[in-house]
Nucleic acid binder design. Structure first.
Length: 312
RNA sequence: GGUGCCAUAGCUCAGUUGGUAGAGCAACGGACUGAAAAUCCGUGUGUCCCUGGUUCGAUUCCAGGUGGCACCA
């Protein structure tokens, strides 16, 4: 029997959680979350994790399963999600993946290249050099160590240059030698369902949701993790803005306003990313019946004809 | 009702000694392979309230209108 991964994606605040549960209950199956922040057990309000009731309506995976102190990333997610899917497909013909973390979904659908872990000390040293010497110095070294990648990379983006350099310096090989850009074959069919709506209405939803998060105690949640604010997991909309407030850099009102703005911008970025995938079928909230109908039609189609995103 | 002030981008406002306009914020578009809720790049989006007048030419000057604010009745 053909196994199918049904992906539910779309911008933040659109209603993916609710739709995912609806589809999961229809197929009597489980949900694998693809959310790079709901995965952390220390975060709840600001990441809009499913409520206790929602978690009871369908079994969820990768919700509150890791700690912000772990150095988590898309590759680790791929390595953990694939075996989990394997197990779930032994019990179900369909499994639902719900989330808005663009690279995490790509990692599961297409795979990302196997690249050795960088030496943390080398990464730190590069970060210091960036501050002290500027990006130009790092660029020059990259040009020497990996001219191939130097010609591809966005030379204005220090994060990309540092990552390439840390791999070159850790492994002694050019970063580009690890980049194969090959799409990995998966032993299951993939159906992508996108949820979106009119931009202005989405903005209203996002603004309202942030207000509700504040009412629910987001400030206290942020205060609780404030001592760990240097962690990458907390370089996140809904938390970093509070840290700036706690540090006396901005007012409380300003912080809340920035959370709304940054959430809106995040949503726009997600729409840009997901929008370029021609394999995604788009719907609006409230179209549950059409969505189920479309998914069932796609499941019945003969396997292996799902268009995948163009490589990048 | 009278007098005064104001009307320019989504918002707050500059500005043009008359040659069709620009800042901040907001917004919009894009890139993306181990930080991805990250990181980076790009874009003014405009009946200068309306109608006349003066002028080669009016968003700018003049008159009237409309709307807003303030004060006086």
């Amino acid at each position: 029997m053909q196994k199918t991964l049904i992906i539910v994606t779309g911008p933040t605040g659109i209603g993916k959680t609710k739709l995912g549960i609806y589809i999961a209950r229809h197929f009597k199956t489980e949900i694998v979350s693809a959310d790079s922040r709901q995965i952390f057990k220390e975060l709840s309000i600001g990441t809009a994790v499913p409520s206790t009731e929602e978690l009871l309506m369908a079994k969820h995976h990768f919700i509150h399963s890791h700690s912000i102190s772990e150095n988590y990333n898309a590759s680790k997610y791929e390595n953990e999600a694939l075996p989990l899917l394997d197990r779930l497909f032994q019990m179900h013909n369909e499994v639902i993946m719900v989330g808005g973390s663009m690279l995490y979904i790509d990692a599961v659908c297409k795979g990302i290249d196997i690249i050795p872990d960088a030496d943390p000390e080398i990464r730190e040293a590069l970060k210091i050099r960036l501050v002290q010497e500027g990006v130009e110095s790092l660029r020059l070294q990259l040009k020497k160590l990996d001219p191939v990648y130097y010609n591809q990379v966005d030379l204005k983006n220090p994060a990309r240059i540092i990552h390439a350099l840390e791999i070159c310096l850790t492994t002694g090989k050019p970063y580009s030698s690890f980049r194969t850009n090959q799409i990995k074959e998966r032993p299951f069919k993939i159906i992508k369902t996108g949820l979106n709506c009119d931009r202005e209405i989405l903005h209203q939803k996002i603004n309202l949701r942030v207000d509700n998060m504040v009412k629910d105690g987001l400030e206290e949640e942020a205060r609780g993790v404030y001592p760990l604010k240097h962690l990458n997991a907390l370089n996140t909309v809904g938390y970093r803005e509070w840290f700036a407030f706690f540090d006396g850099e901005i007012s409380r009102e300003k912080a809340i306003g920035l959370i709304k703005r940054n959430s809106r911008r995040y949503a726009r970025k997600q729409i840009t990313w997901f929008g370029k995938d021609p394999g995604t079928k788009w719907f609006e909230p409230g179209q549950e019946n059409e969505i189920i109908e479309t998914i069932e039609k796609q499941i019945k189609k003969h396997p292996g004809t799902i268009p995948q995103a163009i490589d990048h």
